[in-house]
Design a protein around this nucleic acid. Structure first.
Length: 264
DNA sequence: CTAGGGATAATC
DNA sequence: GATTATCCCTAG
């Protein structure tokens, strides 16, 4: 009398994971409505998504459903985090600021971004400034960490991607307000690195906000930066989705808050 | 709409 | 027989 059980395909699973990354946990209907995922999930209901996510969390957590009842392994234990959420991570990830406004430009670290423009407009070299000039200038005016060069390198790359800076050879110039093309907002398989990073970060923040998991967001941001730096491949998006997914499902994020939290 | 428990087909 | 994956029902 019951219905046939139709197993989930990997495409469906990936779409679900990506959907959770983008829309956050528990936003099943949103995921389903998103034209980006809808084609893959046309045979599934929002309840199906929820059930499937539950199952995936259980299997990845190596814990059967009935044992789950006894041993309190929820998706994430909110106990462990209360000790970690506040301290070092928030300080470390300066990218966490206000993203309540437009989801477009908000997640750049205001500090470094400002410093970069300050440096560039002060140096005012018609051929642009290379990264050493910029680093030198900023080091003189601000207290900056050791790995400032690497941080700046990431920021510069991103600003170029956003069309706010122009890169000629090894030199960076401010690109004046001719920002004709904002985000191209590509279709399905053709995701630009910037969009990937953007979506991943926004999603990570939403998840963190919903579940009080700042450290997951911090980790995701780190991953997003790495992804955007090293590859402009849509596959990275799925990789990132998988990583976030696994971390969500087994609450295995504690270690990186303790000591092994490094940007380099 | 979502979370959670329960029922059932598929699998071990 | 037990466990797992999917589907279903209900409360909030």
């Amino acid at each position: 009398m019951g219905n046939q059980k139709v197993k989930w395909t990997v495409e469906e699973e990936e779409a679900l994971k990506a959907g959770v990354v983008k829309h956050g946990l528990g936003k099943w209907k949103n995921i389903l409505r998103d034209p980006q995922f809808a084609p893959y999930l046309s045979n599934r209901s929002n309840i199906d998504l929820k059930d499937k996510w539950r199952n995936m969390c259980i299997s990845y957590g190596q814990c059967s459903r009935k044992k789950l009842k006894a041993s309190r392994v929820k998706t994430i234990s909110s106990e462990a985090l209360s000790t970690l959420t506040t301290g070092n991570l928030v300080a470390e990830v300066d990218a966490i600021d206000d993203f309540s406004g437009s989801p477009q430009d908000v997640r750049d670290a205001p500090g470094y971004k400002t410093m970069i423009f300050e440096a560039l407009s002060s140096i005012r070299d018609s051929s642009g400034s290379n990264i050493d000039d910029i680093v030198g200038f900023i080091e003189q005016k601000h207290e900056v960490p050791q790995n400032i060069r690497r941080i700046l390198s990431t920021r510069l790359r991103r600003l170029v991607l956003q069309g706010k800076l122009e890169k000629v050879q090894d030199r960076y110039k401010i690109k004046d307000a001719t920002l004709g093309t904002k985000t191209p907002m590509p279709k399905q398989k053709d995701i630009s690195a910037e969009t990937v990073e953007d979506a991943a970060m926004t999603a990570a923040y939403k998840i963190a906000d919903a579940e009080d998991k700042s450290f997951v967001a911090a980790e995701a941001v780190k991953e997003a930066e790495r992804v955007s730096t090293m590859a402009e491949d849509a596959d990275s998006f799925l990789l990132l989705a998988n990583e976030i997914f696994e971390k969500c499902s087994r609450g295995e994020t504690i270690r990186l808050a303790n000591s092994s939290y490094n940007f380099d």
